[in-house]
Amino acid sequence: MIQLRDLKKNYLVQGKTIPALHGIDLKIEKGEIYGIIGHSGAGKSTLIRCINLLERPTSGEVIVDGVELTKLDDQKLQEQRRQVGMIFQHFNLLSSATVGDNVAFPLKLAKRPKAEIRKKVDELLKLVGLEAHRDKFPSQLSGGQKQRVGIARALANDPKVLLCDEATSALDPQTTNSILALLLDINRKLGLTIVLITHEMHVIRSICDRVGVIDGGRIVESGKVLEVFLKPKHPTTQEFVEQVADSTELREAVAHEKATGSRTIARVTFLGEQTYQPILFQTMQETGTVFSILQGTISRMKDTPYGQLVVELEGDEKQSMHAIETLRKRGLEVEVI
């Protein structure tokens, strides 16, 4: 659906060339939710703005639904942009127009007939749950409601792609969740491809299928959300994982245990159905190993449940190794720390 090829962007600041993106290659499939996570200044905002050419890349190709955007003239580009909706961190609604007029705005720009606009606005307001607020002005709405207006507006032209530029960063956690649920709902109902950028792990974990970690203008790690976050390789990715799994405590616990004896400490990862089965307990019982749990998480990424337990195995090394081998045979991932 979206393909970026060797995308580079330099900014000219006071006569000096500052590179923001160093050759990004990215392929986003139709119907998926792709998340790009990075710290501020990593280039994620520039990257998402390149997808609809709000920022013109210095070099490289931007292909959306088979059309190379950088080669289009202004008018063709304006037509193509209607295929790509966008929502923003600060909503960017017209303060002088009502909720209804804001949603109607892109249709008005596309010069659609009035009756069609009315009907479409009704549908969209219903979809985002704002039928009752049609005649209000943005200043009368809460942040979450404003973002719902933004979403309805972005969907007005029936786009194939929705770009979300830090869409939940200005919202409180509860409102963030309701907006994420709405995005997931739209993705499923309309089969819309969604690209979002964020600095919050929580956003990626809740709704994304795949993720790209951006750092210093480069995608340093990418893949399925589960794989990237259960086995983070790049230091930046590890930092983001630590945002949600409080590993400083774990590190202290491990250090403490290691200092007190020659015990084996292992991280056991469960995926999907395994998460709710007593595999760990059974295995330990069968092999006669005594264990204690130092830290544990049972959670889900989008729809997949997963668990990660850090366990300490008591007894001699040979016995512990046997237990670990058995766990591996039963399909669990075990890493000795």
Binding site: L54, Q78, F105
Partner: peptide, 22 residues
């Protein structure tokens, strides 16, 4: 607000439409 102009651009507004409607 610069962001509102950007939003209009992202919806495929021409410069004239941005002046007149935004």
């Amino acid at each position: 607000d610069r962001g509102v102009i950007e939003a209009a651009q992202s919806m495929g507004a021409s410069n004239w439409q941005i002046v007149w409607n935004v």
